[in-house]
Design a protein around this nucleic acid. Structure first.
Length: 520
DNA sequence: CGTTTTTGACCTGCGC
DNA sequence: GCGCAGGTCAAAAACG
């Protein structure tokens, strides 16, 4: 069960003491305030926190344990009768203060709330339960509203990224930079290609060059679409079709192109699949010629009809390198963790569309530098600075225009930051975060270069990584994830300097009241 | 029992 | 036309 979420650790005990209480905190509603993303702050609801504080005060007045005081004072050794209810053998673990529960749905929260409610009301009168119930109703209402706003935010963010890339492409583009590939590519667009963003129709990213899909046995909508496309093969792209294309809005071509463009990511990983925040379902596996390692085919299952697919294969020359190739664009809102990769693939598709390697590189660099969640960006572009030698390349020789992001190389030394890590430290951080889960995390790749410089970023990454629902991870993944977390925590805490920085970052986060909850 | 993975079969494009 | 390789389907198996 290779789930792209691969955030099994979020439900693992070591990092979530007093888990049940956390679920009810306002911290669970939002991602941490993203320094570079004012929109995220914009969507925070102070009222919710005020609501929570009111509830906490009430609990205090009633002589009950304030779960949230546990937060604010970072007393990870606090024990209480209520804590015992969720207590386990992780007391000797570091309480990062991060919200690590993922239950976001009303039902889930309701369940936990009910449980905590049971504990609270056992020894107290019922008169107080009614206001609490009302508060919880309000909380749930706000949660729903939050969910809706987050969906909207995802859409807006996606659109913003696309527009930004397109603008960068146009800005950087010069006449002699326009290469053949994208034009040829666009010329191959079947005329029937339309936006997949809202219809939910499973229009598949195909063109004439690509080996066609369906074996004809399954008559899924996708297959039907493919058939229709086959009836008008690209090679017969007539003048009428070209005229039809010209009549289409430009963004139609762009979107169609994006669905065909490919983004290949090379990263070192022992895990079978990298984590990109999305949910994938494996639908096939093949032995590719010249490579003893099989190639796995995955399809995005976050939304019905999402055309995004990816291929995962190990490099024949170096089996520690995992090559993940993305194709297409999502037709649904994405969780923040998935936004990074999605925005990257979108950028890559856009740069292919823009038709210039240099402009593309600039576009991608710009987009990445400006996208707060783009983990690849920070892996490629330390500190968001524009690098001329970013590890991105565009292949025109491949069957499809492909952007390759090589994350197997270490970043060049960055003089702008305070990178005074010893190689040993960096290596330890790589080991710590690169093996964070059973799947390699891009954020781990990124963290390996930044973690010591920015513990708060580490926490944000951890925060994001713990947002997703536990159901998406297999037990094996959870177990391995738990082990990795243990190792990670151990490694982190073994470094006194880093521990101090981590504590400071935790304090910052807690005092800032930033929290999150995964949309789903 | 529903979901996911496995895996053999099938289809298509391309090169010869 | 044939064979090969890439990609996908879908029944069966596995899993929770």
């Amino acid at each position: 069960m290779d789930k792209g979420w691969c955030l099994a650790v979020e439900s693992d005990p070591p990092l979530r003491p007093a888990a049940a209480a956390y679920t009810t905190t306002p911290f669970s509603f939002f991602p941490p305030p993203s320094a570079g993303n004012p929109m995220m702050r914009m969507f925070q609801f102070p009222d919710v926190e005020a609501l929570h504080h009111a509830a906490a005060d009430r609990l205090h007045a009633a002589g009950e344990v304030d779960f949230f005081a546990h937060h604010h004072h970072h007393n990870n050794k606090t024990t209480s009768p209520s804590d015992d209810s969720s207590h386990n053998d992780d007391d000797d673990q570091v309480n990062t203060g991060l919200h690590l529960l993922t239950a976001n749905t009303v039902s889930d929260q309701s369940t936990v709330d009910d449980q905590t409610q049971d504990h609270r009301t056992t020894d107290h009168d019922d008169s107080r339960s009614k206001p609490e119930a009302e508060l919880q109703v309000e909380l749930r209402t706000m949660n729903v509203e939050n969910q809706r706003l987050r969906d909207m935010l995802s859409q807006v963010s996606n659109n913003y990224t696309s527009l930004q890339i397109h603008l960068a492409s146009l800005t950087h583009q010069t006449p002699n930079q326009q290469q053949v590939v994208p034009r040829k590519y666009l010329a191959l667009m079947p005329p029937g290609e339309t936006s997949n963003s809202s219809s939910g129709s499973e229009s598949s990213p195909r063109n004439g060059k690509r080996p066609s899909v369906s074996g004809g046995r399954g008559e899924s909508p996708e297959s039907a679409t493919n058939k229709a496309q086959k009836l008008s093969p690209p090679r017969s792209n007539s003048t009428a079709q070209q005229q039809q294309q010209q009549q289409q809005p430009n963004n139609n071509n762009a979107e169609a192109a994006m669905r065909k463009a490919r983004v290949s990511v090379r990263a070192r990983s022992e895990a079978p699949m990298i984590s990109d925040g999305c949910q994938w379902r494996k639908y096939g596996q093949k032995m590719a010629k010249g490579n003893p390692c099989p190639r796995a085919y995955y399809r995005c299952t976050m939304a019905a009809g999402c055309p995004v697919r990816k291929q995962v294969q190990r490099c024949a020359e170096d089996k520690t390198i995992l090559i993940t190739t993305y194709e297409g664009g999502h037709n649904h809102p994405l969780p923040p963790a998935a936004m990074a990769m999605a925005s990257t693939t979108t950028a890559a598709a856009t740069m292919l569309l823009s038709g210039s390697t240099s402009s593309a590189d600039g576009a991608m660099t710009m987009m990445m530098a400006n996208h707060p969640n783009n983990l690849l960006a920070r892996a490629m572009i330390p500190n968001g600075a524009v690098h001329s030698n970013s590890m991105a390349s565009i292949s025109a020789s491949a069957p499809f225009p492909t952007v390759t992001l090589d994350l197997t190389h270490t970043s060049p030394p960055n003089n702008n930051n305070n990178d005074n890590n010893t190689p040993v430290q960096l290596q330890r951080q790589r080991e710590t975060f690169g093996m964070y889960n059973n799947q390699t995390k891009f954020s781990g790749v990124q963290l390996s270069h930044e973690v010591a410089n920015s513990p708060s970023q580490l926490l944000q990454q951890l925060h994001h990584q713990h947002q997703l629902p536990p159901r998406v991870a297999s037990p094996v993944a959870r177990q391995q994830g738990s082990m990795m977390v243990d190792q990670s925590v151990s490694a982190i805490t073994s470094d006194p300097n880093f521990t101090a920085a981590l504590a400071a970052a935790i304090s910052s986060i807690m005092s800032g009241g930033g929290g999150n909850q995964q949309q789903q």
